[in-house]
Structure formats: structure tokens, C-alpha cells
């Protein structure tokens, strides 16, 4: 089975992150793990920081009407772009503007997160615009760490969180820290592109 990149159109959305190499790697990770995803019969899925919405739309194309698809973004334009992507691909995405999954009380069976991973000054993390799609602060981990610190509370017992990381995010340290919290961490896919070595890992409760 091959997984096509969902349709999208960001012509009216200059402030929304355009799907790039990292997005394509993430879709390839979902494709590689498709069998496992289908067999685990997830009921509640969520993409955090959905941007254009193509990742959660790709997941919805795999699982169709067997799952529901929540997505969140702090950028209001991203929320609108995601609802457009949902229409273009005829998939039901439920988008809400919020920080991470702060206002959702359920535990998810699948979480997708392509975080702002670029190493920047902490001061670059402000507002709700395009800078927030990539500015990750020192070590590129400011937002990722906020999610990981909370992962135990938002992931179901059999849930899986797919997370994109950059080599400079110090993946070894993340693995150690999450291992101590009882998480199992597995590499799904990696790719070197000019200037970046990207990885998609999956985290599950061991």
C-alpha cells in the first residue's frame, strides 16, 4: 500500500507552514507503520500543530471511518487551512484552536506531532504566526519537551505518539528521559537532507 501526500492549497495562507521534507518524511513514517496502525484499531487520533493538516489527513486516508481525527494549532490561519485540506481530501477533521491538547480531556490512541524543531533563541518563540511553526528555542526542544512532559496524561495505555526530531535535539537524552518515565521508544524512519538529519520516532507506554 502506498500513501499519497494529501491534496492541499495554501495560496491564501502565507502564514501557514508549507509541507516540506520533514512533512514528507513523516508521511513516509506513517506509510511504513501503516499495518501496525491499522491493526491497533485506534479510536481517537490527534495531530498537534496541524498547520496545513496534511499529516492528519494522510492518517485519515489510512483509517477512514474507523477513527476520529482531532487536530489543534495556535495559528488561526492553520486551523482554517486544515479545514480546507479536510474538504479537498474528503476526510472529517475536527480542528480546534488551542495550545497542544490543553483543552481536550480525552486520551489519544495516536498522536502525531511535527514540532517546531529548529534551534533558535527562546525569544523567537512568540505570537501565533509562521515563526511558531519552526522556532524551537534552545536545542529546538522548547515545545517538544512541553509535550513529552505531559505525554503520560494524554496518551492511552495502548497509544502511540509519532514525533519528528532533529539530530541536534539531542535524541539520546530524550530517549533516556522518556525511558525513565516508562516509555518505549522506537525509530520509525530517518533521512538526511541538505543541512538536516531528521528522524521520526514513536513513543508508547511499555
Amino acid at each position: 500500500m502506498s500513501l499519497q501526500t494529501p491534496l492541499y492549497n495554501l495560496n491564501d495562507f502565507p502564514d501557514v507552514y508549507e509541507p516540506s521534507e520533514d512533512t514528507h518524511l513523516f508521511i513516509d513514517a506513517l506509510e511504513k507503520d501503516m499495518k501496525h496502525i491499522i491493526n491497533s484499531k485506534p479510536t481517537l487520533a490527534c495531530e498537534i500543530g496541524c498547520g496545513s493538516g496534511v499529516l492528519i489527513a494522510a492518517l485519515a486516508k489510512i483509517l477512514k471511518s474507523t477513527c476520529c481525527y482531532f487536530c489543534t494549532d495556535i495559528n488561526p490561519k492553520a486551523c482554517i487551512a486544515t479545514t480546507r485540506t479536510a474538504k479537498m481530501n474528503k476526510v472529517p477533521l475536527e480542528c480546534t484552536r488551542m495550545d497542544l491538547t490543553t483543552n481536550l480531556k480525552c486520551k489519544f490512541d495516536i498522536i502525531l506531532f511535527n514540532p517546531p524543531y529548529v534551534l533558535t533563541e527562546e525569544l523567537e518563540i512568540f505570537g501565533c504566526g509562521l515563526n511558531r511553526a519552526f522556532a524551537g528555542g534552545l536545542r529546538g526542544r522548547s515545545v517538544t519537551d512541553r509535550l513529552l512532559n505531559n505525554l503520560n496524561d494524554i496518551l492511552s495505555d495502548n497509544g502511540v505518539c509519532y514525533l519528528l526530531l532533529l539530530k541536534e535535539n539531542n535524541i539520546g537524552e530524550i530517549g533516556e528521559k522518556m525511558g525513565e518515565k516508562g516509555f518505549k521508544i522506537k525509530l520509525v524512519i530517518q533521512r538526511k537532507i541538505p543541512g538536516e538529519h531528521l528522524f521520526v520516532y514513536k513513543f508508547s507506554k511499555a
Binding site: 495556535i74 486551523c79 482554517i80 479545514t83 480546534t96 484552536r97 488551542m98
Partner: peptide
Amino acid sequence: NNGIPNMLL
């Protein structure tokens, strides 16, 4: 608005 709740504080 347009089906999207704004929960951001």
C-alpha cells in the same frame, strides 16, 4: 467560527 472553536487563552 466556521466550525472552529477558539480555545486559546
